[in-house]
Structure formats: C-alpha cells, structure tokens
Design a protein around this nucleic acid. Sequence first.
DNA 1: CGATTGCTTGACTGGGTTCAAGGCCAGTGG
DNA 2: CCACTGGCCTTGAACCCAGTCAAGCAATCG
Lengths: 238, 238
Amino acid sequence: MAETATHIDIPCQRCKVRNRAICAALDDEQIVDLNAISEHITLERERTVFFESDPADYLYNIIDGNVRIHKSLADGRRQITGFLYSGDFLGLSVAGVYPYSAEVITTTTMCRFSRKGMTKIIERYPAFEHNLLQLASHELAAAQEHVLLLGRKTAAERLCSFILNTAEKQIGGISDQRAKLPMTRQDIADYLGLTIETVSRTFTRLKKTGTIRLPEPDTIEIANFQQLEDLALGEAAA
Amino acid sequence: MAETATHIDIPCQRCKVRNRAICAALDDEQIVDLNAISEHITLERERTVFFESDPADYLYNIIDGNVRIHKSLADGRRQITGFLYSGDFLGLSVAGVYPYSAEVITTTTMCRFSRKGMTKIIERYPAFEHNLLQLASHELAAAQEHVLLLGRKTAAERLCSFILNTAEKQIGGISDQRAKLPMTRQDIADYLGLTIETVSRTFTRLKKTGTIRLPEPDTIEIANFQQLEDLALGEAAA
DNA sequence: CGATTGCTTGACTGGGTTCAAGGCCAGTGG
DNA sequence: CCACTGGCCTTGAACCCAGTCAAGCAATCG
C-alpha cells in the first residue's frame, strides 16, 4: 500500500471524540491539516483552563473529563454558565478575549488549536466555520434556556431541568435512567442560581416524592421520569 | 457615466442601518446580490414576527423599531431574553426552527431575507458567514451576562444593569445620560426575572437615592452615573 | 484517629411576590 | 367640556420561598 498522507499515523483519525466534536466537519484527508495545529493537554481537577478577559489564543475540544465555565461579580458571587462534557467545544471569543473563565472539574484531557492556525483552516475549509456557527447557535439556544430557568423557574423546577439535561449529556443518553454528577453541590447551586442548602433540601424532597433516587451523593437515578419531566417543564400539578 | 450595476438604484446601498447590520460584511457590489433576496416588512405594535419552534424560513434585520424575544412555560410564565433595536439582527435558528418567539414592541420595519437565498449568498461570500459567527458569539456572551444577572444579582443590581445596557444601545450611546424605554414595566419585569411591582418599587428607590430621574415613566435620566455603574456591577457599598 | 471536606438538616430571617387599592393619563362619547 | 373607561404604573400590607446562620454527619486523608 502506498504511503500517502492519509495512511501516515494521524492521531486525530483515531480520536475518541472524532465524530462528536467540531472535527466532524472535516473528512479524513482534511483533518490532517487540523492535526498539524492541534496538541493535547491534560489538566488536573480544579485547574484553570483560562480566565475571563484573557486573550483568546486557543480553541479547545474536550476529549475526556469535565469543564465548568463561569462569570463572577466583584464581591465573589459566582454564576456557572455551563458544564461541558467530552466532545464539547470551548473557546468562542468576543473581541479577541474569552467572555468567561473555564476550569476543569475532574482531570481533563483536551485538544487545543491555536486561533491563528484555525483561521487558516477556515480559509481553506469554509465548512469548518459553518460548523462553528451551528455550534454557536446551539450554545446560544442553551443559554436562553438557562435564562428561562433562572428567571422563571422554582428551585424544584430548576433542579429537575438540571437533572434531565445532565442525564441527556452523559454517554449512553438518558435511556439508562442514571446520571453521574461530576460537580459539587456548590457548583450545582452556582449553576442554578440557588444556595447549596436549597439544592440539598430539594434533592431530599425529590427523593421523598419518589421522583429520583440518590444511591450516592454523586449518582442520580431517575425513579419517575414523567414526574421529573413535568416538574422540569413547569407542568407539575399545582 | 456608464450605467453599471453599482449605479442602478440599490435600496440596500442607502439603507439607514447599512453599516451597523450584518450587511456591513458585504461591499457595495456584493450587496446587490443581497438586495435581490431581501424585502421590507412593517409590523404594528404587539404583532408577532414568529413563534418559538416555527420553521426558520427567514432572517431579519431591524431597520427601525423595537422587538422583544421571549420563551414561555406551559402555565404562561414568560421570560424575555432580549430587546432588539434598529440595526440588530434576528433569526438564528437551531435544527431549522426558531428557539424563541419574537414580537414587535413599537411599529417596526424590518429587512427580511429568505434562508434559502441566504445560503447561496454565504456560498459566494464566506465573509458573510464569518460575520454571522461573530454576531452569534456576541449574542452568546450577552446571554451569559443575562444568566449572571438572573442568577446572582439583586433586584436593584438587575435594574441598574438593564438601564445601563439600554442606554448604551440607544442611538447616541450613553453619552447624553438619557434613555427611552420603549417597553412596558411588565416587559422589564419579564426580562429581569422580577414582578412588575418590584420593578416599580426599585425605580422609586433609585429615584430617591438620586441615582436616576424619571421625568416620564418611559424616559430615564442618569443622575449619578458612578452610583448606577457600581450598583450594576454589584460593587455598591454594602 | 483527629482533621478536613462535602453534604444534609433545622430554625429563623428577609427580599421579593402576592394580593389589593389607588393614582395618572389618554381616548371616547354624551 | 367633563364624566367614564381602560391601560399602565405606583404604593401598601401580608406572606412565602429561598437565603442565612448554625449544627451535625459521613467519608476521606494525612
């Protein structure tokens, strides 16, 4: 077999998130170019990927692990705007800087692209930018859903929405009625605009009403999917 | 003078938002193509532009007027996710449908492009998609700022942030220390995740502390910019 | 095995909501 | 010209959901 470019070992081609990440926009030949500007990095738990208002020199794809992104007020109040899982993309910027901080929750391996290199890739393969737009639109819709949650849902509705979203994002989807919570109660509280105590109490109430089970603090089992969904959508019987 | 394409009357070329809207991505020659797929529409106050989950057949640019976008829960609770002003863009979709509803607040004239036509423009001028991505990133950052506001700010901080943002978006910017409020108190409440009564009471309190003036219910004057900004950023003296 | 960290639970508080009037103003019609 | 109406905003009083303050518990770690 001739030793053409596509037969040389290209790490990207056997990447475990190859088909779920933005790289899916490129075929095996095109991805050689992407491979050339990418590198893997691994960060330990609680390490910062970047800070809000840092120059946005890199884009990231999460290969394995979990990342949280947040914004803060001067006095320390924190609002987590998202939790990212393997396959997720990170690093959209505005005016050349990141609009939020990012930290890894568990030890996380990411694929990192330089923005400069990315610009060249985009010039060559417009499909890549098209994918980025799709992705940004999707994130925008998710952020607006988050706005609805924070602006108009009760504590129980917020937590149920969170459980559903988290389960959907896990490998295997929502089908196995089970979700791991890689983040702490404080993280959940800061995502849902609540306090740690309210999160804990609401978990307890959902257990008592038979909506969920919590075999361990970081493992949720959905006991009554219909009830959970009705609550999440604000359609529970008054 | 020869009658080349650029000298024929192209409405887009004399559009008042020509340089502030996404059309700015195209030069005078390229915009001829955009002109071919665009049309103006005018809607009276309180009319719906589109509903959440409608097929996203059109993209819009606001020429003159004001639009609000929102999401709702089954029982009628409403969360406004944004107010749009002239020059603003509207219509990013996910999976072919709009992720929110849009209504005009005041009589509004918009420029409308068909999505199909847009796809062709993008193929010809990749700069257009690049601009859409910039725009989506910008909206995403704004949505995350909104998430911070709803999740972690007090009523007074929310209202101050809103006043600042609104003033900045008005023609002339924040410099004249004055802003028109085209929306009702109910709209403001549904944007800030509060009730109409809390909005009203908070306006009164801000008046009493000399932060703002309200010569008319729909006209705000910034009396103490520093105080307003400190409050908006959550940096006010405890 | 004490110390630390993370989670839960209880008692009390308070900011914002709910419920209820009342005021203001533009539009309408007698 | 003024009474009436309805929409919108403001104000007051009572209430309640989530926050605050304070223990206590369970698992992990040095």
